[in-house]
Design a protein around this nucleic acid. Structure first.
Lengths: 224, 224
DNA sequence: CGAAAAGTTAACATTAACTTAATCTTTAAA
DNA sequence: TTTAAAGATTAAGTTAATGTTAACTTTTCG
């Protein structure tokens, strides 16, 4: 079942969105402020989060940033609600890791098809929903951002963690560099040619040489 | 080479997009109205079509619909150009078979990364959606870039893998050298006369002698 | 603020993959 | 049966892709 979390301080909008999305069969959760929103993301792991940008205390951008700061949610789709002429915020929205923005006023039809399009876009990444991934002798805990091998705890910095999680999300599948760049850095970020290699290097250093395999000219895969 | 067709009635935009995409090495074709656009799609079979929504006579939506009406262009990626707040049209765009929309004003960098993402998406989907090919006692897994024969895992370097996948794509069909060159190396690359032979040799070494058959003076085929 | 950690870049090294070249073998037509 | 053309084989050469290290930059957090 597809879970959608809506975060907005205006009750009317919350109700309006909630009503329309529920009617379409989505499982809707609501929060009336950013802090609560972040908490509910952790608890419910929604497939899509809709954030109002203009909120008192913590605005949507900030909420997004904090959600994205946790690697285990970097595949959650985040959309922003904006008043029609908040152009500047739209730009920040994408910078901060948002996937789309929906501008108010909202027509139900528009909302529904936008939401469906967003979810469609993400279907490929679904397999990875359970918080702890076990593979071979590793246990990857996305909440704690750490890996267990037997008694040994391996802690990884964010990018390294994201990378191993990506590879492990489809064990055996070969990920091209392109794929890795677009999934971990996003399409608008351009990093140098050797960046992935270096992260792979670090991972092999910490995990051992036998987990990640290079297929030259093709990409990397998690081998087990 | 990647071909992009841009359809827009405004010459300035056409030039601007064209300039930026050409600079990135794309092969750009332009049309200043929908009718011409549809014609050029037929002629050039571009990998990506960028359609302005707002055009006199035939709008982008209609152009898209007509392109999609031809089954052979089912897989062509279509993106729309929209003014920033044309919300309704964005919806129609997706309904009608568009893959993305790009909103004006356009920053070159954003354009480029958007276009690349779109093109990439197609390639990935191809590999991801392709099932495992089973033929004789072989299972060819394109996602894992490996071949299984019973318990045995056979890993092949890129060219060899591409070659076997090509041969297997139409089992029994004879592929001429010309065909193999153009499908695997493309028309811009020229390699020597014996290159294919060597790759065939390696494949036979790894798979066994009985899969690939030589028809002298004609070509090679996958025999099973 | 300022140190430590994370992330990126850049230069150079290494290596697997790929191509070529030289030579040998097979095939099929005259 | 001869012979020329096509293909097979092998080893050696070349290149493109990745590995490695360290320096540099940015971010994080006390």
């Amino acid at each position: 079942m597809t879970k959608i979390l809506i975060v907005d301080d205006e009750i009317d909008i919350l109700d309006f969105l909630s009503y329309n999305l529920k009617k379409e069969g989505f499982d809707v959760i609501t929060a009336s402020n950013g802090k609560m929103g972040i908490e509910l993301v952790r608890q419910h792991r929604p497939n899509l989060v809709i954030l109002d940008i203009m909120m008192p205390e913590m605005d949507g951008i900030e909420v997004c940033r904090r959600i994205r700061a946790q690697p285990e949610f970097n595949e959650t789709t985040i959309a922003f609600l904006t008043a029609r002429d908040e152009d500047l915020s739209q730009i920040n929205a994408l910078d901060v890791g948002g996937d789309d923005y929906i501008s108010k006023p909202i027509k139900p039809q528009v909302l529904i098809s936008r939401v469906k399009a967003l979810l469609r876009r993400n279907k490929l990444d679904d397999a990875t929903n359970s918080p702890i991934i076990k593979i071979g002798d590793l246990e990857i805990d996305r909440q704690k951002v750490q890996i267990l091998r037997g008694e040994e705890v391996i802690e990884l910095p964010r990018k390294e963690f994201e990378l191993i999680v990506l590879l492990v999300s489809k064990p055996g599948k070969v990920f091209t560099r392109e794929e890795i760049y677009s999934k971990i850095w996003g399409n608008d970020v351009i990093v140098g040619d050797r960046t992935i290699d270096v992260h792979i290097r670090k991972l092999r250093e910490k995990l051992g040489e036998n987990y990640i395999k290079t297929l030259k000219g093709i990409g990397y895969k998690f081998d087990f």
